[in-house]
Computed example of a mutant assay.
Amino acid sequence: MGMLVISENMTLDGVMQDPTGDDGFERGGWFGQVTDEDHQAWAEVECGEALRAQALLMGRRSYEYLVERWPGRTGTWADRLNSMPKYVVSSTLMKPVWSNTTVITGEVVDAVSRLKHYVEGEIVVNASGQLVPLLIEHDLVDEVRLMVFPFVLGGGERLFGATSATKALRLVDTRIVGAGLALLTYSQVRVE
């Protein structure tokens, strides 16, 4: 059975919006404000995660962002992302151009539940700000990995929104990445 992992870059105050500044958010671009050492260490963590993962799951907007950047790249990380199975939740994407991409339409919760039974190993969700809250709300998430960038933006879209009930998580690992980033890993506490 697959393990659904949310893997997010976010600021200290939980903002995940526009890390690269490409979307025009006035406080965006925070990803580029760390040192080269931090970027290199971040890339090593992300590459390792991709090598361990068996599949990627994402929303349409995240797919569009990633498909513009990865298919033309080479190297260990790019080769893994380009070759691995990718699943995109979308009602509008009809013909994905990124290799090994399957579009999930219809009832998302059921489709992701089936995907977890079908895929052995980690199914990683990056970005996907609309999909992540739905997965959390329906208790489909097994682990949350937060790469925390040392900025307080004071505004912007946050990863965690309203839920119908408290969602308990347990801190299972902390790690300093580079000189200024923190990787926090939580597992979901299953209530029987």
Rank of each mutant, 00 (worst) to 15 (best):
I6G: 03
P133D: 05
V112G: 03
R27C: 02
E8Y: 00
G59H: 11
V97N: 10
A50V: 04
M84Q: 13
K86I: 07
M3T: 14
M94G: 09
G75Y: 12
L140P: 06
V15R: 06
R61M: 13
L56P: 08
M3A: 10
F31K: 12
G154T: 02
C47M: 13
R27T: 09
E44F: 01
T185G: 06
V172D: 02
K167W: 01
T174R: 15
T166V: 07
F151D: 01
L81V: 02
I136R: 14
V125K: 02
N126T: 11
L93R: 04
L183Q: 05
H138A: 02
L4S: 02
P150W: 11
D173Y: 00
L134I: 11
S128K: 05
P150S: 08
E49F: 04
G155M: 09
A162K: 13
T35R: 14
L135M: 07
W30T: 02
Q17E: 05
T105A: 14
Q188R: 14
V34K: 09
N100F: 00
L159Q: 08
Q17Y: 01
R61P: 04
G48L: 13
R73C: 15
D38F: 07
I123R: 06
G29F: 01
R80N: 04
L183N: 12
P133I: 02
Y87D: 03
T92E: 13
S113R: 15
T74N: 09
G2N: 13
K116E: 08
K95P: 00
L66W: 07
T11L: 08
A78G: 05
V141F: 00
L169R: 07
M147S: 11
R80Y: 12
E8T: 07
Q17F: 00
W70H: 01
E46R: 04
E44N: 11
V124G: 02
V34P: 02
I123Q: 03
G106S: 03
R69F: 13
S62L: 06
